[in-house]
Design a protein around this nucleic acid. Structure first.
Ligand SMILES: [Zn+2]
Ligand SMILES: [Zn+2]
Length: 802
DNA sequence: AGCACGCCGACT
DNA sequence: GTCGGCGTGCTC
C-alpha cells in the first residue's frame, strides 16, 4: 500500500508541510505526483496537491485519499520543484506557491451541507429548516437563527450529518453537435415515411442524407434555415442524435491572421542572435541581456530564436508587459506561429484564461505569450524564455507569493537548461550591471532597423516660463509646436506622468482635504454616485455640501490631472480635438484599445494620457511628443525614481517619428539639469548607467546591495513600533557586520483600514542564511499573529516601498 | 484557516 | 437546563 505526500489547501503556517495519506487500491495506479486530490482533513474535506508517492509513512494510522480531481498532473515534476523553490525564496506558504502557478478556475471552493439521516422527528426549528428536504446548505442554517446547540445535539444523536464538499469552479464551454442516429439508407426510408406537411423536418433529413457528418447545431440551423424545435423533434424521433463537444473560447478572433515569414536581419541583429541560437542548439542555460533602442528589431530576434526552438521540438515562453499585450502584438506571434500560440492576458475572463492554459497543458501549443503569470506555463520541454521590456515593474507580483518573474524565469532556465533573454531599451541597473560583470551575456542593438535617428529631444525649463509670467502647464515652445503640428495635419502625443491622478475633494477657503477616516489617504470623488470613496478600504460617504472644517460652501472636487490638462488645453487651442487616456477613460475592458484605434484612424489631433501611453504606440502620423512634467516622479520616496524617469522619457520619446515623417520631443521640467532628464534627452544610456550606479553605490542601494522589506501592521501604533523595533534588534543580532538594518520607519502608506504600518529595511551584500533568519524572527511573533491580529509581511524583492 | 471541545457566566 | 462567548489545540 503506497502513501501520498500531500500539500493541503489550508493557507496557515502550522499546516505548511506535507500530510501523508494512504492511496486506496482503486486509485493505486491512477494517482501520480502533481495531481489534485481531495482528502479528509480534521472534520473537513479539502483539496491538496500530491507532491510525492512513497512506499510507507512514519505515521501510524493514515486517512485515505477520497478522490482524484485530475486525469493527468496539473503540475509537472519541474513545477513541483519550482513551487518549493518559490515558497522558500519568497518566504511564502507552499500552497500559495502552487496555487499561483495554476489558473484561478482550478481553485477549489468549499461548501458545507446538512444531510438529514433520520425519518424520526427533529426539533420544530430544524423541521422547518429542512421543510421536507433531505439536504440543506449550511448557509441556510446560519441564516435561520436556530441555536447552534440544537444542531449539535441532532448531529450527536446521529439524526443529521455535516457533509463537506469540494467544488471546482471549472466551466467548460461546449457546443451542441448534431449528427444522424442511424445509417444513411434508414434516413432515406424515414424521409419517405414522413408526411408531406413536415416540410422543415424533410429538409433537415435531406441535408443529413447528403452530409452525414456531425455539424454544430447553430451552424445547422442557419444552413438549413430551421429552428431549434424542428431539430428537437427529430432528436426525439431518434433519427438524429446530439452530443456536447468541448470547445475553447476564442478571445482573439484569429482565424484570419495572415502568416508571415522571417524578416531579413540587420548586421547588428545577426550578431545578437548568433550566441542565442548557439545556446539553444547546445542546450546551455545562459541569460542574455538584449539592450536594443526602440525600433531596433528586438521582437524579430525573439521570433527567429523561437523558430529555432520549435524546430528542436521544444517550447517557448514570452513575457510581455500587460499594457503591451495588444492585439497587434498577439498578431505578430500568431502570424509567425499560427495556432501554436496561447495568449495569457490578465484581462481575459477566468474561463478564457483556463482555456489558454489548457492548450499548454494538453500540448496543443508550443508558444505562450503572456503577462507575469505566464512564466508558470506547464511546458515540459522549454527551449527559451523571453522577457520583453525587462525593466517593467509589473513583472513583480505585489501580493503573496511576492515573486519577480525575472527570478522565476532564470530558475526555470536552469531547470530546463535553456537560454533566458531579457530585452529592453532601458535595462534595469541590476541586469546591466550583471551583464557588465559577465554574469549575463550582453547583446546591443544601437541602430533602428529603418536606419532613422531617434527623434530630437528639446528640454524646456519651466522655471523660465514662470518667471516670464506663463502660469499655464504649457510652455510657449510646446504650444507653438502643437499648433504647427496641427497645421500640417500631423498628430501629437502628450504625456502627464503625475501621480495622485484620482479626483479628490478640497475646500477652496481653508484647504481642507477630505481624507478616509480609516486610512491615510484622500478620498476620491465618484461622479456617478456623487459620493466619496476610499480605494484602500470600503469606506464611502456622500459628497459634502459644506466644508466640515470651516463650513464654507466652496468645497469642490478637483478633476484628475489629465482632466484638468484637457480643459486647459481646450482653452489654449480650442480647435484641437483631444482623446484623453487615463484610469477613468480606460477602466472598461477594451476601452484602451478603442481609444487607440480612434486616434490611429486620425479622429483626433492630440492623444493626452498618463504613462500608459508611453508604451508601444506606433502611429505614423505622430510627429510630436510632449512630456508636461518630466520631473514629477523624481521627488517620490523611491530610490528607483531617477531610473524610472529615464526609462519613461526614453520610452515616450520613441513614440514620435517612427515612420517617414521626422519626429520631435518636447520635455517640460522644473529641474532641467537633473541627469536622468538630461541624459534621456540624448538617449545616453551608458552615461546614465554610470551616473546612477555611482548614486546607488553612495547610498547603498541595488545593485550594490540586496534588499528585504519587512512590514508590520496592527491597529495599535505603539504595538507596531515596538514590534518593528524588536525585529530590527533581532536582525542586528544575527546579521553580518556590513549588513544595514533600517527602521522602524513609517510605511509610505502609514495607515490602511485602521491598521498602522511600519517597516524595516535590510540592505545586505551576502547573507546566505537571511531567509531562515527572517523566518525565525517572524516565528517569534506567532502568538501575536494568531491571537492579537498582528501582521508581518516580508518582501524579498521589494519594488514598491509600500 | 476552520473546526470541535470544554469551561464559564448569564439568563430563564 | 439553555444559550452564547471565548480560549485552546489539532489537523496525516
Ligand atoms: Zn474649509
Ligand atoms: Zn480607507
Amino acid at each position: 500500500m503506497s502513501v501520498a505526500k500531500v500539500i493541503v489547501d489550508v493557507p496557515a503556517k502550522q499546516i505548511n508541510q506535507t500530510f501523508d495519506y494512504s492511496i486506496p487500491s482503486k486509485l493505486e495506479h491512477v494517482i501520480t505526483p502533481g495531481m489534485r486530490v481531495t482528502v479528509p482533513f480534521g472534520p473537513r474535506k479539502v483539496m491538496g496537491f500530491v507532491l510525492q508517492i512513497v512506499p510507507e509513512s512514519s505515521f501510524a494510522k493514515l486517512k485515505s485519499i477520497t478522490d482524484v480531481l485530475d486525469l493527468t498532473p496539473v503540475l509537472t515534476d519541474e513545477l513541483l520543484k519550482l513551487g518549493q523553490w518559490l515558497a522558500e525564496e519568497t518566504i511564502s506558504l507552499y500552497i500559495t506557491a502552487y496555487q499561483v502557478m495554476l489558473p484561478q478556475a482550478l481553485k477549489s471552493q468549499y461548501k458545507k451541507e446538512l444531510v438529514r439521516l433520520t425519518d424520526g422527528e427533529l426539533t420544530p426549528d430544524l423541521e422547518s429548516l429542512f421543510a421536507g428536504r433531505d439536504v440543506v446548505t449550511y448557509e441556510e442554517f446560519t441564516q435561520s437563527m436556530i441555536p447552534y446547540h440544537q444542531l449539535l445535539k441532532a448531529i450527536h444523536r446521529g439524526d443529521i450529518q455535516v457533509d463537506y464538499l469540494v467544488k471546482s469552479r471549472i466551466t467548460k464551454k461546449t457546443e451542441t453537435m448534431i449528427k444522424p442516429a442511424i445509417a444513411n439508407h434508414l434516413l432515406e426510408e424515414a424521409y419517405l415515411d414522413m408526411p408531406k406537411q413536415a416540410k422543415k423536418q424533410r429538409e433537415l433529413l435531406t441535408y443529413f442524407i447528403q452530409n452525414p457528418e456531425a455539424i454544430k447545431k447553430k451552424q445547422l440551423m442557419s444552413k438549413v434555415n430551421t429552428s431549434a424545435s424542428t431539430v428537437k423533434t427529430l432528436l426525439q424521433k431518434g433519427l438524429l442524435t446530439s452530443n456536447k463537444l468541448e470547445v475553447y473560447r476564442n478571445p482573439y478572433n484569429d482565424n484570419a491572421i495572415q502568416r508571415t515569414a522571417s524578416l531579413p536581419l540587420t548586421i547588428q541583429q545577426e550578431q545578437a542572435i548568433i550566441p542565442i541560437k548557439q545556446a539553444i542548439a547546445e542546450k546551455i542555460h545562459d541569460v542574455f541581456l538584449l539592450h536594443g533602442v526602440t525600433g531596433s528589431g528586438k521582437t524579430e530576434i525573439y521570433l527567429q530564436a523561437i523558430e529555432d526552438v520549435i524546430k528542436e521540438g521544444k517550447e517557448a515562453i514570452v513575457l510581455v508587459p500587460e499594457i503591451s499585450l495588444t492585439p497587434q502584438m498577439v498578431h505578430r506571434f500568431k502570424g509567425r506561429f499560427g495556432s501554436d500560440v496561447a495568449v495569457m492576458h490578465s484581462a481575459l475572463s477566468s474561463g478564457e484564461k483556463y482555456d489558454e492554459w489548457r492548450k499548454i497543458y494538453r500540448k496543443e501549443v508550443k508558444v505562450v505569450v503572456g503577462a507575469r503569470s505566464a512564466i508558470f506555463a506547464p511546458f515540459e520541454n522549454l527551449g527559451i524564455i523571453i522577457i520583453d521590456e525587462e525593466h517593467e515593474t509589473s513583472y513583480k507580483q505585489e501580493d503573496q507569493p511576492r515573486y519577480h518573474a525575472r527570478d522565476v524565469a532564470i530558475e526555470r532556465g536552469k531547470n530546463h537548461q535553456c537560454p533566458v533573454i531579457l530585452g529592453s531599451a532601458t535595462p534595469t541597473l541590476e541586469s546591466y550591471a550583471r551583464a557588465n560583470k559577465d554574469v549575463y551575456k550582453l547583446a546591443t542593438l544601437s541602430k533602428r532597423t529603418n536606419e532613422k535617428d531617434m527623434p530630437e529631444v528639446e528640454i524646456v525649463d519651466m522655471r523660465n516660463e514662470l518667471h516670464q509670467g506663463n502660469r499655464t502647464m504649457f510652455s510657449r515652445k510646446l504650444k507653438e509646436k502643437i499648433e504647427a503640428c496641427l497645421q500640417k495635419k500631423e498628430q501629437v502625443v502628450l504625456m502627464l506622468n503625475r501621480r495622485g491622478y484620482s479626483t479628490f475633494v478640497m475646500c477652496r477657503d481653508c484647504g481642507h482635504v477630505k481624507e478616509c477616516p480609516h486610512c491615510d489617504i484622500a478620498l476620491t470623488y465618484h461622479k456617478n454616485s456623487n459620493r466619496l470613496k476610499c480605494h484602500y478600504c470600503s469606506y464611502e460617504e456622500p459628497m459634502p455640501t459644506v466644508c466640515p472644517e470651516c463650513s464654507s460652501d466652496l468645497i469642490r472636487y478637483f478633476g484628475t490631472g489629465t482632466q484638468r490638462v484637457e480643459e486647459a488645453l481646450t482653452q489654449l487651442i480650442p480647435e484641437a480635438s483631444i482623446i484623453r487616456m487615463d484610469v477613468d477613460t480606460t477602466r472598461r475592458k477594451g476601452a484602451h484599445e478603442k481609444l487607440l484605434n480612434k486616434f490611429g484612424r486620425g479622429e483626433a489631433d492630440i492623444l493626452l494620457g498618463t504613462q500608459m501611453i508611453a508604451k508601444g504606440l506606433d502611429f505614423e502620423n505622430v510627429t510630436l511628443v510632449g512630456v508636461l512634467t518630466a520631473d514629477s516622479m523624481l521627488h517620490l520616496p523611491d530610490f528607483r525614481s531617477s531610473e524610472k524617469t529615464f526609462q519613461l522619457l526614453t520610452q515616450v520619446s520613441g513614440r514620435a517619428g517612427r515612420h517617414e515623417l521626422p519626429g520631435e520631443v518636447i520635455v517640460q521640467t522644473y529641474t532641467p539639469d537633473h541627469y536622468s532628464i538630461e541624459l534621456a534627452s540624448t538617449y545616453n544610456f551608458t552615461d546614465f548607467y554610470l551616473k546612477e550606479m555611482a548614486m546607488r553605490k553612495t547610498f547603498h542601494y541595488p545593485p550594490y546591495v540586496f534588499l528585504a522589506l519587512i512590514t508590520v501592521s496592527h491597529p495599535n501604533q505603539v504595538k507596531v513600533v515596538q514590534t518593528t523595533q524588536k525585529i530590527v534588534q533581532s536582525l542586528l543580532a544575527s546579521v553580518k557586520e556590513d549588513t544595514i538594518i533600517l527602521g522602524p520607519t513609517p510605511s509610505p502608506m502609514a495607515r490602511i483600514k485602521d491598521r498602522y504600518r511600519y517597516q524595516c529595511m535590510v540592505k545586505y551584500k551576502n547573507e546566505p542564511n537571511l531567509r531562515n533568519i527572517i523566518r525565525n524572527i517572524v516565528n517569534q511573533f506567532d502568538d501575536d499573529i494568531q491571537k492579537d491580529d498582528l501582521l508581518i509581511a516580508v518582501d524579498m524583492q521589494p519594488y514598491q516601498m509600500m
